[in-house]
Amino acid sequence: MKLGFIGCGNMANAMMGGIIRNGLCKPEEVLAANPSAPALEKAKKNLGISTTADNTEVAKTCDVVVLSVKPQFYEEVIAEIRNAVRPEQLVVTIAPGKTLAWLAEQFGKPVQIVRTMPNTPALVGEGITAACPNENVSEASLDCAMRILKSFGKAEIIPERLMDAVVSVSGSSPAYVFLLIEAMADAAVADGMPRQQAYTFAAQAVYGSAKMVLETGRHPGELKDMVCSPAGTTIAAVRVLEEKGFRASIMDAMKACTEKAKSV
């Protein structure tokens, strides 16, 4: 399988890294296009992939084409490649706000399109990706898309109406978690812990807690209660978080993210 990426930014590199690391494609089977020569040089050096400055070359030569440019460039890029896209090809998109109907209109002909929303933990094989195929996608193409997406983490098929919610709950949420880890580490540093050690303790606590949710199947509230001993240190901290509106601030932030996704 020849896999092509139009766009070679952080998300594309995360996806390509996971795909290659998990053996779904060999480096020489991956072709990336980007107008920035330094970006291509970096990807070629780090991943061993083939590169080009020509988007049309990717569309002409690859079995699967991933559009990994920013949403504002989708119309321009699709106009450039649509005559080269073939019915048997699979096009994978990762842009928030660009619906299957909008994408079909841009191509102006039947195209197999899977709209997705991955996230950057794909870089370490722990991504989570939502996928939504259009009516032209064959069973074989959808299976191919899911194998690609699962090569760098988990992936689930969802109805398109939920895609904007996915943007906020997983696509953008690593940034919220990084903020949390940074804040936790800052507090530990203020209490005397060396900074690098503080990052390790904070990040491992978040990683382990997430793993408990996924592997035990218990409700997060139940797991939280397990840590909160009567008159203990944890419940004192939780009380402050509740007073400061911790939950509400997260929900408000995610709502803003979802609304932005709808308007992109």
Rank of each mutant, 00 (worst) to 15 (best):
V69W: 00
I6F: 00
E243T: 09
I128D: 10
I181R: 02
E29F: 05
R86W: 12
E41T: 11
G217V: 00
T120S: 14
E76S: 15
K224E: 02
A183Y: 04
L31V: 04
G23F: 07
Y207R: 13
V91W: 00
A104V: 12
K2E: 15
F5K: 00
A205C: 08
L67M: 08
G23K: 01
P230R: 09
I20G: 01
F73I: 12
R21G: 13
G127H: 01
G208T: 02
R218F: 12
V85Q: 03
R239L: 07
T120V: 14
A202C: 10
L142G: 12
E182Q: 13
S263R: 13
A84M: 08
N136P: 06
P230M: 11
V206Y: 04
M16Y: 01
K2L: 13
A183R: 02
F73D: 14
L90E: 06
N136V: 13
S68E: 03
V91R: 00
V85S: 04
Y74T: 11
K2G: 11
F201I: 15
A187L: 08
I49W: 02
G127D: 04
A210F: 14
R147Q: 14
N55V: 03
L214W: 09
T51C: 10
N34W: 05
G245P: 09
L24T: 11
A261D: 05
R21M: 06
A185S: 11
T52N: 00
G48D: 03
S50C: 15
R82D: 09
R21Q: 11
L24Q: 06
A95Q: 15
M226R: 08
R115G: 05
S229T: 15
V66Q: 02
A43N: 01
Q106F: 10
K45A: 12
A256F: 01
I20P: 01
K262W: 06
